[in-house]
Amino acid sequence: MTSTPAKKHVFVVGDVNGREPIVHVGKHQTKTAATNIQAHRTGKLLETHQPVHHHVIFSTLGRLPFVRVGYSEESATAAGIEDVTVDTTAADDGIVKAKDVPEGRARLVVGTGGTLLGYQGLHYHADAMAKTMQLAVEMELNVR
């Protein structure tokens, strides 16, 4: 996070600020706004909210949602980050086979040191995995 000198500010979170209109992002913005309101009152530096990219798109009547959290392979390359991508198909996952929903794919984008940078999924329950993967990316967890 970067800091800026405290000035008169209006602190806006959620859909009304014109940024990512996603509940998880709005909740995170609220924490940053509360911290900044307190900092502003005491003349301290303000934090800039830097959200992890997080999108969920529902397709085919919600059966196969698409999720993108953090970096994609392309955005990591554009940012100059060395990465490794790992792809798998839903049909290769035993749990997915048991639920009889073998369609779909998933991808992890991992830094060369093992830090999880991003996740993309188009598969059954990808939407449920989105928040878990967002936390793993935000916490810079290592895949090892």
Score class of each variant (00 low, 15 high):
residue 27 K to V: 14
residue 85 T to I: 14
residue 144 R to S: 08
residue 40 H to Q: 15
residue 48 T to Y: 10
residue 95 I to H: 11
residue 121 G to H: 05
residue 54 H to N: 10
residue 130 A to M: 04
residue 36 N to G: 07
residue 70 G to S: 04
residue 5 P to Y: 01
residue 140 E to S: 10
residue 45 L to A: 14
residue 16 V to I: 13
residue 41 R to L: 13
residue 66 F to D: 05
residue 114 G to C: 13
residue 118 G to F: 06
residue 101 V to A: 12
residue 70 G to H: 06
residue 137 V to Y: 00
residue 43 G to S: 09
residue 51 P to N: 03
residue 122 L to S: 01
residue 11 F to G: 00
residue 13 V to M: 10
residue 98 A to C: 09
residue 124 Y to I: 10
residue 20 E to I: 14
residue 116 L to E: 02
residue 47 E to C: 05
residue 106 A to D: 02
residue 123 H to R: 08
residue 75 S to R: 05
residue 75 S to I: 13
residue 9 H to W: 03
residue 89 T to R: 09
residue 42 T to A: 13
residue 31 K to E: 01
residue 43 G to Q: 07
residue 139 M to L: 15
residue 40 H to V: 09
residue 43 G to M: 06
residue 45 L to P: 15
residue 129 M to L: 14
residue 133 M to A: 08
residue 5 P to G: 03
residue 67 V to K: 09
residue 63 R to N: 14
residue 67 V to Q: 12
residue 40 H to E: 15
residue 50 Q to A: 10
residue 40 H to N: 14
residue 24 H to L: 04
residue 19 R to W: 06
residue 22 I to N: 01
residue 19 R to V: 09
residue 48 T to N: 14
residue 45 L to E: 15
residue 100 D to A: 08
residue 16 V to C: 12
residue 7 K to N: 13
residue 93 D to S: 04
residue 15 D to P: 06
residue 6 A to M: 08
residue 133 M to S: 04
residue 5 P to N: 05
residue 43 G to H: 07
residue 101 V to D: 11
residue 142 N to I: 07
residue 31 K to Q: 05
residue 37 I to S: 02
residue 11 F to T: 05
residue 7 K to I: 06
residue 115 T to M: 03
residue 87 D to A: 12
residue 125 H to N: 05
residue 68 R to E: 15
residue 93 D to H: 06
residue 98 A to G: 11
residue 99 K to I: 00
residue 71 Y to T: 08
residue 41 R to H: 03
residue 45 L to R: 14
residue 109 V to E: 09
residue 32 T to L: 00
residue 75 S to F: 12
residue 1 M to T: 13
residue 31 K to A: 03
residue 44 K to G: 10
residue 112 T to C: 07
residue 11 F to H: 09
residue 82 E to A: 10
residue 17 N to Y: 08
residue 13 V to L: 11
residue 103 E to D: 13
residue 52 V to G: 00
residue 56 V to P: 06
residue 142 N to Y: 06
residue 46 L to H: 01
residue 8 K to G: 09
residue 104 G to Q: 01
residue 14 G to T: 03
residue 3 S to P: 02
residue 129 M to V: 02
residue 35 T to R: 11
residue 65 P to Y: 11
residue 122 L to K: 06
residue 85 T to N: 12
residue 55 H to G: 01
residue 136 A to I: 12
residue 143 V to P: 04
residue 116 L to K: 04
residue 53 H to R: 12
residue 52 V to W: 00
residue 117 L to G: 01
residue 20 E to H: 02
residue 114 G to E: 04
residue 44 K to H: 10
residue 8 K to F: 01
residue 29 Q to I: 08
residue 47 E to T: 07
residue 62 G to C: 11
residue 7 K to T: 13
residue 86 V to Y: 08
